[in-house]
Structure formats: C-alpha cells, structure tokens
Design a binder for these strands. Sequence first.
DNA 1: GCCAACGTTGGC
DNA 2: GCCAACGTTGGC
Length: 215
Amino acid sequence: MPPKKRSRVGGKAGSSGEDGQHKSSSVAGKKRKSEESSPDPPQYARWLMKSEPESRFENGIDVKFGIEDLKALPEQTSCWDGVRNYQARNFMRQMKEGQLAFFYHSNCKEPGIAGLMKIVKEAYVDHTQFDKKDVHYDASSKPDNPKWSMVDVQYQRMMKRFLPLSELKSLHLQHRAEGGPLKDVALFTRARLSVQPLTAEEFDFILSLEDEEPL
DNA sequence: GCCAACGTTGGC
DNA sequence: GCCAACGTTGGC
C-alpha cells in the first residue's frame, strides 16, 4: 500500500502509455458509457493517498514513509512509487499537476489524514517495478511495456489538527444514515484502495474539519 | 496478531 | 470465462 521511499524526483518524464484494463464489463460491440472504460473517466481533481508512517519490514526492507519523511526530503518532494493495484494506478494516471491530495497514514497506531500534498509531476514509469531489490519488484512487467506508474508529490502542509479515521468514520456513518458529504466517500466504500479520488464536496468538507473541534 | 474484505491467479 | 484458492490490505 504504501508507496515509499525514494528521494525526490525520480526518473524522466513520459508516461507510459496504455492502460491496462481492469475491469471489464463491456459488451462486445457496445459501448458502455457510464463509468469505467478509459475514454472519459469522471474527472476527479482531489485525491487521498495512503502510506505507512510506522516501520514495517517487508523482505527485510522498511516500508515506513510518513508525512514527516516526505517533508524531510529535498524540495519536500518524492515519487509515489510502489503502487501495485490497477485501480490505484489508473487514478494516479488521471492526476494533473497542481492538484491536491490528502496524505493518509495507514496501518499504524492512529490512522487518519495527516496533511496535504500537491501533485508536482504527472504519471510516469515507476522504475521500482524493474528493480529486483525493490520490495515492489514485478517480474511480470517488462521495460518495453511497463505496467506501473507513479507521480511525484510535494509536501504542502500538515492539517491544522490530525483527522483520525475514527472521526471520519463516524461522520461517514452519520452521513450515510442522514445524508451528508461523506456518505459515499471512498475511504470507507473502497477501503483497500491506496489511491482514491474525492469529489470537491468531500474534499472541502474534510478540509473544513480541521477548524472544528475533534469529535 | 487476527481476520474480513476483496483483488489476483490459475486450473479447468 | 468461471470460480476456488490464495495473497494483500489495513482496521482493530
């Protein structure tokens, strides 16, 4: 889930092409409009990206990468490598320079939204897929047709207060029952996705929570 | 550490 | 192309 380390900007630009396809559901000959398909995916402009702020060793490598680690890098910028899920990858490929993303701390003592970052480089090839030493090496991906992409992100700021998952969850449940902006938020409806889109309404509502008293 | 949810893989 | 087995995510 978490992406991880790596210092600042990584390789060269370019995004690799193609997209894999992932769900299908399409009928032969017919087009399936609503969602899915690559032609025109809904346009999202705000994101939530998960990473683990506490040490955890995978194949002997520490995958820890919290918001403080991002902040400490040169230019407070890092590539977001290691995403190995097609939906998460496809969302990264939709990201545009300048868009904002919440930095979410997962798999830790206190999960929740820690801060804000900005997309500073659009999707390009994640080089770690070819690195046998890397935790996220993917033997099935070939350099002439890379499977995985990453973006570069830059630290913007910490939230004025940490927004715990527990609080977001009670709001989600409340909104689901009575209506409200977090009714369908991906954090709970697509819990395992490490890169998620947020509607403007969801994003703005979550941002407004930092000025509220903790629940 | 447990385990539910869900994505991926591979046999058929 | 189905679906059971398996692997991963991530809260608790």
